[in-house]
Structures are given as structure tokens and as C-alpha cells.
Nucleic acid binder design. Structure first.
Lengths: 224, 224
DNA sequence: TAATAATGAAAGTAATACTATTATATTTGT
DNA sequence: ACAAATATAATAGTATTACTTTCATTATTA
């Protein structure tokens, strides 16, 4: 079963890298170790120099793959959302009822993350934490409009569209399908962050799951 | 009417500043011009050196007020949320019905921001944009737990508690009052950002207001 | 008016975020 | 098998950042 997807590759907009990191061992360890280091030390403290030391390579070689650490973050974000989209497609294919589709979407968005053997150089558990802690920084910039125009956020936007499509199927009269969809994506990340750092301003914890909250929200908003 | 609040001061945790900027002209221009510059150039490009040049003062003098630009951001965030809380208190006092209270809360959170003459050195319109674009960066850090422990986010948490209190009043059986409240605060900021930069993944625009979406959400979630 | 506190000016430090150059491997095409 | 092309490593260099330190000057207050 696993082998079916051995040739599966998450497609990422060419503009975010200078050289595709999937095409070499060095590229893969930039991505793989980059995730681990950003997870461990945070995006602000992370530098290409430190990454070079860790992977036994040179700073200047890393710059041949990514223009800056911001571009690496855009790459990781596209990779993550592409991977989430792939899991959502698998989980919802052949499911007819949109309410069951949305239930499964929410479980993918905020359920426990497990390592995916189809992508061996990426630690998805660490990447998930990186996205919770750093994803917002990829678009809260002064360059967001030009980068959006270039298409660097297209994977994320396509995912919002996919989920808003299910919302429209479930209730075609609902007035805010895109806003609800984008709120689910952002909100699931945010509630996971609060659960770990600000437990007094969330009801989510080990017992009450993040998707319990959003499941209730979605079905209250969409019921007719 | 305005004069009643001339002596009103937004109280901010002492730990975020080294010297209270409200106590001097220099301090006020650090805050006032700091807001304008972060708004104009973004938090990443903003430095104390550039701020010093703008206000005709020295970098080292600014460091006597704030340990770092991160601390200045924490200060601005506390100021902003304190100011929002003050507006919410004014707007909801003497209002009995919790649904009307929540309606007014949502209007404060995502309605148009106007300059507040009670706080002359702060441009609230610019500060509102700064919060939309930069607030997340104040807590998406490796230091968040120790800073939270110090109390640097207490204004924000108190605001979440105030709104979740209204939610509980409106429906005491609702299972996720804190999560809904924190989703409203984060979500209103996020939808305002999407409206300005990613219009295809939100339904909010000049016609459909951000609080129309959240008003619908809150009342669907809380109706019995 | 003397003491105290606040601000300014200047210099210094370690690190960041790169770029450029040159040397050395490694891969590939014939 | 060998030359050519490509990838990587090593080194150095630059402008800027994020501070700290020291000392001089200017306000404030007792």
C-alpha cells in the first residue's frame, strides 16, 4: 500500500527556490535539517550559517537552493499545505456526504500528525509544529502582495477553495463559505497553539480536541 | 464629553518597558513615531537606529525605554488591547442583553477605527494596521511561555475572558466559550488581513463586513 | 546652586544576511 | 577513459543589525 505513492511528489511553485532541493542529497538535507532546526530554535534564531554547520556543508551552498530563509519558509509552507491537501484528498475520496467529508477534513487539520513514510527526508511531526509556530510569518510581510501575485501561496488558496467547495455542497445558501474555510485553516492552527501555550483562553486540551470545537462550529453554521 | 477621559491612561505591565514612555516627551514620540514607522516599513525592517533618526534622538536613548523592538511590540499590543477593552466596556455598559453586547463587541473588533482624541500621541488607525500585520509575531516566539508567565499578555487574556463571559451569559450550556472568544479576536484580525491581501479566500469586503460573518457564526453557535 | 537624572554622541562588538571569488570534487556525455 | 560541465566547499568581504559601554552635555529638582 505504501509503495503506491513512492513516486508521489509534492509540487511547489518554482519561484520559491533557486534550485529544486528534491533533486539532490544536499537539497534534501537542507529541507530536512532545516525543519528540525527551525522547530528546535525558532525561525528568528535560525540562520543558514548554523544550518550549514549542522549538515556539514557551506552557507554559500545553501544560498544556491534558497534565496533567503524566508524563501525556505515559503517552501516548507507549500510543502506542508500540499501534503495536507493530499491527505484530505485521500480521506474524502469516494465519500459522498459533505458533512462526513468536512468531519474528515477537520480531523486532518487538527488531528494527531504521524510520520509519512512516502516522504522520507521530511519529519512531518516537526514540520507540523513549525507551521503552527511560524506559518503566519510567511505572509505577514510587506512583500505579501507581490509574492501572492507570483503564485507562492497558490497551494494554500487552492486548499481553502477545496474546503469551501465542500461547505457550499453542504449548504448552498450559506453566505460565507470562503471565510469559514479560511477560518478553519487558521483557527485550527491557532487553537493548537493556545492549547500548548495559553490554556486559559481555549477549551481545547488532551480531552477536548480542537476539531470537536470546529466540528460544532461548522455544523451550527451550516445546518438548515 | 471628551474631557471626561483626559486623565484616562491605559495600564501596561511594567515588565515590558525599562522606563514608562508615558512619562516623557521622548517616550511618547518613541511610541508614536514607532507605530508610524512599523506601519510604513513593517516590523522586520524597523530598527531603533532608524527610529532615532526620525525622532531626532539617539539609538541608545531609545534602549533606555525598551530593551528591544520585540518589547516595543509587546507594549504596543498591550496598549491596543487595553484600548479595545476600554471601548468594549463603554459600548456594552448598561446593556442587559448578551446578544446585543456581543453584537457591539464584534463591531468594536472589526469595525472602522477612528482616531481617539483621548490618547493624543497614538495614531490608533495606524496602530490598528500594525496589530493586524504584526500582532501574531509578538507571541509566535520561543520566549512566549516565560513572557506569558511574567504577565505580558494579561490584557489580551483578560479581554478573551470578558468576551467568553458574555458568551456564557448568552448560552451557559455552550461547550467552547473560551475557544470561541479567542477565535473571534484572532479571526477578526485575520479576516481583515485577507480582505486586504487575499480577497479570493474570504467573503469579506467593502460590502460584506467582517463582523457580518462573525455575527452569523456566534449566533449560530450559541442559539438554543 | 549643587546634585541628580535624562539625553546625546561616539565607538565598539558579535552576529546576520548576504555576495563574490576561487578551488576542488563529482557527474555526465562521448 | 577523459574532457567538459556542473555542484559544492572554502575563504573572504560588505553593509547592516542589535545591541552595550563610556563619557559628555543638558535638564530637572531638592
Amino acid at each position: 500500500m505504501e509503495n503506491i505513492f513512492n513516486s508521489f511528489k509534492i509540487v511547489i511553485h518554482e519561484g520559491v527556490f533557486k534550485k529544486d532541493p528534491e533533486t539532490s542529497d544536499l537539497g534534501k538535507s537542507i529541507v530536512g535539517k532545516g525543519i528540525d532546526m527551525i522547530d528546535a530554535m525558532g525561525f528568528e534564531s535560525f540562520t543558514f550559517k548554523k544550518l550549514g554547520e549542522q549538515i556539514g556543508s557551506n552557507e554559500s551552498s545553501i544560498y544556491r537552493y534558497f534565496e533567503s530563509k524566508h524563501m525556505l519558509l515559503l517552501y516548507l509552507a507549500s510543502w506542508y499545505w500540499g501534503w495536507v491537501e493530499y491527505k484530505i484528498v485521500l480521506q474524502t475520496m469516494n465519500i459522498k456526504q459533505p458533512d462526513e467529508q468536512l468531519r474528515r477534513v477537520l480531523e486532518v487539520l487538527s488531528g494527531e500528525v504521524l510520520e509519512d513514510k512516502n516522504f522520507s527526508h521530511v519529519n512531518e511531526v516537526a514540520l507540523h509544529r513549525v507551521i503552527i509556530n511560524e506559518y503566519s510569518k510567511s505572509y505577514l510581510t510587506k512583500t505579501v502582495d507581490s509574492e501572492n501575485k507570483e503564485g507562492y501561496f497558490s497551494v494554500y488558496k487552492r486548499l481553502v477553495g477545496r474546503i469551501s467547495g465542500m461547505i457550499k455542497e453542504m449548504n448552498p445558501t450559506y453566505a460565507f463559505p470562503e471565510s469559514l474555510s479560511s477560518t478553519l485553516l487558521e483557527g485550527t492552527l491557532h487553537q493548537q497553539f493556545l492549547r500548548d501555550h495559553f490554556p486559559t483562553i481555549t477549551n481545547c486540551n488532551k480531552q477536548v480536541l480542537v476539531h470537536d470545537f470546529f466540528f460544532d462550529m461548522v455544523f451550527n453554521c451550516l445546518k438548515r
